[in-house]
Nucleic acid binder design. Sequence first.
DNA 1: AATTGTTGCTTCATCGATTGAGCAAAGAGG
DNA 2: CCTCTTTGCTCAATCGATGAAGCAACAATT
Lengths: 359, 359
Amino acid sequence: MTRPKQAKRTTIYDLASLAGTSASAVSAVLNGNWKKRRISSQLAEKITRLAEEQGYATNMQASLLRRDKSHIIGMIVPKYDNRYFGSIVESFEDMARARGLFPIITCTRRDPQLEVEAARTMLSYQVDCLISTGATDPDRITEMCSAAGVRSINLDLPGTLAPSVISDNFEGARELTRKILLNCERQLNEKNPLLFIGGRGSDHNTAERIRGFRQAHSEMGVSVSEENILPCGYAPEKAEKALDELVARGVLPAKGMFVNSTISLEGVMRWLRRAGAIDRQDVVIGCFDWDPFAALLGHHIEMVRQNVPAMLEKMFEMIEAGQTKPVVVQVPPIMPDEEGPLVSREEALKAQTAYRNAG
Amino acid sequence: MTRPKQAKRTTIYDLASLAGTSASAVSAVLNGNWKKRRISSQLAEKITRLAEEQGYATNMQASLLRRDKSHIIGMIVPKYDNRYFGSIVESFEDMARARGLFPIITCTRRDPQLEVEAARTMLSYQVDCLISTGATDPDRITEMCSAAGVRSINLDLPGTLAPSVISDNFEGARELTRKILLNCERQLNEKNPLLFIGGRGSDHNTAERIRGFRQAHSEMGVSVSEENILPCGYAPEKAEKALDELVARGVLPAKGMFVNSTISLEGVMRWLRRAGAIDRQDVVIGCFDWDPFAALLGHHIEMVRQNVPAMLEKMFEMIEAGQTKPVVVQVPPIMPDEEGPLVSREEALKAQTAYRNAG
DNA sequence: AATTGTTGCTTCATCGATTGAGCAAAGAGG
DNA sequence: CCTCTTTGCTCAATCGATGAAGCAACAATT
């Protein structure tokens, strides 16, 4: 390394004295507008080389302090423990960077207090825009943002003060419910109402899904009682407990189940295993959300996968279009068939034959 | 809202003129050392109230520019698509905040180029410390950091230039292999070598796990051929393809499998299903990593869960102790039995009885 | 009355990058 | 040879928060 020992980081002033030039020339070269500022390409090259050698990195704090836009985009997200939020976060980072923005993400554990604190911190870091994903009180966050002159957008759960991008929960749930009911008819030869389990009754998505659930039942001529609807919360333990309580009251859970998230599905599967039903093929399940392993669980589970890339695409479109009105854009989720089979029939047959021959 | 319409954010100067005082008094009050600076409690109260009313948020860019320590701690992480990294990220955020640090995390998709760019960006944001999680070239990042006078720590995969906290992969793999071999004996009545699948042969963890895998075999008097070891990469498709190729060569994969990650397990399960083996109870699997749904898959799968809280605890201890030597701390993973059964036997029996009675 | 101490502030330089304004030197045009 | 333009830079103010140094007003001490 040619770099001298230094406790402090290299600044444009260090580079300037090394290059025998001024800090403003260095600045101009390093942020790319040296042509506009009529710096010779020789000097530009020299400075670039020096910066490289010295391992220079712009002090963003100083840079952002001076500029009007930070190009930082913040996102708050409830949890990292499922594929839905995982892929939201991963795609968000990617798409933000592709647009020259710096993403910062923070997890708020579905805690309203933490959401507010996180939002305040993000504002301190001068975000240009804040995305509230699955926030319990998105309007509160929008208020904080607009007080600071910062845009905000709601994702996954809608708000009333900022634009929102969400899944089409009603249609998705209606279609999923219909599928589960048909599977029940086919597999169990029965046409009974399903059990709805998981989620918070107070949140918009759960309410819409329950509406779709009801609609599908009535369209198929099945009536559902209030007892079949258990929006018991998101944690796996809550679903387990809700099922336990049902049984304790002497009620056998319906054999067809609409599970409101993979997290709740975790609890349902645990409960089923515990109740000795894991191997019985007489439980028919559908889940609003996707997980690769859940998709491979013994019984065929219908899974609706929310269309994360499309949702984020819409979201960035809104940002670029400068949308500030509280519109709600609904993105259709991906239904099981649309996805197509995992492999073609021919491929599967070939693999099976090869496996058997080898054995 | 009493707040006036403003395009700009409120600064300490705005608050100062509103309070009829100076900016430095406002600063002293808002960052809590007003007693040290002998500001009267009346003025302090007045300023605090005004700040509240105006929805003031410190401009971190300005604040950090002035201070010597940023209290920002960065982490780069390969993916968000599994429970291991998900819980690392979630716990890391939590523990960082608990220590008064501001966590920023970025996902680098196992791409060496992206890792370097991400590290450079984090240095730009003046992180005090950078954690490289599962980095392909952690030493490169350590070099960049030390050039900027920033500490760095490796997590999950070790480096040679900075302290590292990793799982005890050798012992974990040895124990897991032993378990799978025993399960094979019990369930299949055979004592054949297992298949090792997934991961990168070049990474330290995979190499250590292969070493443990071999050790366990030799301890149990089973010899493993080179052909049984397939470190084919991490993506599910890679595991699928590796199995396909094995079969294409006329080799039947071993019925006992050591799968190197849940991501690889996804591919293995898909392949087994495709090959028509998903229902056969004659496949015995163990996985180095944990996933709640994988744990519920038909065949009993032994899963080793890496001890994320313990690893992060060690990591923060190192940070606080100012450790800079390239020591490697190994944290024992959680073996299946240590976790205990999901529910007690009594509870399970009670639930089963209730379920049957209700039905 | 003179000195010293304390309280409660204000002033101002500073962190590093940015950018409008300005200026010297070289080249072009007459 | 003189003016005007272009080229290639430098100067200095600025962003908002911070904290050392300083200062006025009053109280306490000799």
